[in-house]
Amino acid sequence: MAALNIKKGSSSHSAYDLRDPHAQVESSHTLAVLVDNEAGVLARVIGLFSGRGYNIDSLTVAEVDHKGHRSRITIVTRGSLAVIDQIKAQLGRIVPVHEVHDLTVEGRAVERELALFKVAGTGEKRVEALRLADIFRASVVDSTLESFVFEITGTPEKIDAFADLMRPLGLIDVARTGVAALSRGV
């Protein structure tokens, strides 16, 4: 089963053979869920998380195969390994869900997020914001005499770091897309 990160139909070993089942240490996992793009499918996934008390740190969804009506939902969640395995198994049994991948355990993955930052200020602060934006390779997508809107792409950590730097410089609004992720290599 893809949901359990073991070969489909194989049950000779479970993920539990590999790890301590009683480990209560919470860790963050990025799950890629491929679903039929049909009405209500996102509600099913979100309902599963709220109904069973799981966490969602970030969630993105968009159609990725127009002809095949497939959407990709990327969820960043946290929990003990037992909980993460249960989340994957529960996702796997939703009828329109085709595949569940745990990008955190299935080898290395690229994770990116896009964010827009509105920073208001004049004088020295405005110059400093622009200088830092340059260091972070953020681009200016809107500008007035009192404000900038920066666009930045990167890992969630990079965007957090940029937000920390912008806050004292007049950060007034943030919009983030949530994480999109793909495994590296083929």
Partner: peptide, 18 residues
């Protein structure tokens, strides 16, 4: 037959999905 039933409450040594 339901993968989500396995290891949900009790850790098992030998799961057989089917």
């Amino acid at each position: 037959i339901d993968a989500s039933s396995i290891n949900k409450v009790i850790h098992v040594d030998l799961p057989i999905l089917g």
